[in-house]
């Protein structure tokens, strides 16, 4: 039992330590950035903004701009946060580099969420939906389920969520 707790604790600690480091770095910078490569062309990626209801989280509230001269824009209903989303062709046939930059006093607070949203955006663009495990069965009791919710959030966003 002690070993069990140590193993699970260790796993969660791994996530926790990495997340804490990432958070500290983010705070220091007041500037958060995440990037992902999507297999589609920049045109196809941009076309996704014609159906904003398909876009996950914060991406539904901003539009991509050109990499040169783009300016971070205010995000409706998110105080102290400005976002700049850019689309650049990736080398050869690798698709599109989607970069999201967050600035402003609350940028760091949105770090984990942006990471998860960008990841979901990539999935939606590549395979139509972001796969989830929310709502699946387990042999956990009610109290364990509550703890597990927080763990799942950390595993998705890389923070304590």
């Amino acid at each position: 039992m002690i070993r069990n707790a140590a193993v699970v604790g260790g796993a969660v600690a791994t996530v926790g330590v990495a997340a804490a480091l990432a958070r500290r770095r983010a705070r220091q910078r007041r500037h958060v950035e995440h990037v992902a490569t999507v297999v589609s062309s920049p045109g196809e990626v941009a076309a996704a903004w014609q159906q904003p209801d398909r876009l996950p989280g914060l991406f539904a509230r901003v539009t991509p701009q050109s990499a040169e001269g783009g300016e971070p824009e205010r995000v409706p209903r998110a105080r102290g946060l400005r976002l700049l989303v850019t689309l650049t062709p990736a080398p050869h046939d690798r698709g599109t580099e989607v970069r999201v930059m967050a600035t402003g006093p609350s940028a760091a607070d949105h770090d984990g969420r942006l990471r998860a949203d960008l990841r979901a955006l990539k999935s939606v663009l590549e395979c139509g939906e972001a796969v989830t495990v929310k709502g699946q069965p387990s042999g956990r009791g009610r109290a364990q389920r509550a703890v597990q919710k927080r763990v799942n959030s950390a595993l998705t966003k890389g923070g304590r969520g």
């Binding site: 796993a11 791994t14 996530v15 990495a18 997340a19 490569t37 297999v39 690798r94 698709g95 990471r115 990841r119 990539k122 999935s123 590549e126 395979c127 139509g128 972001a130 796969v131 989830t132 495990v133 799942n152 950390a154 595993l155 998705t156 966003k157 890389g158």
Partner: peptide
């Protein structure tokens, strides 16, 4: 569990799928 559409799936390297892990942060870290 693989999406079938990402770069790795298209190349037949399904276990490297970009979209198959529902909570990828720990793996990435």
């Amino acid at each position: 569990i693989s999406c079938g559409h990402c770069r790795y799936c298209r190349e037949g390297r399904f276990s490297l799928c970009d979209n198959g892990n529902a909570q990828p942060a720990a793996f990435e870290d």
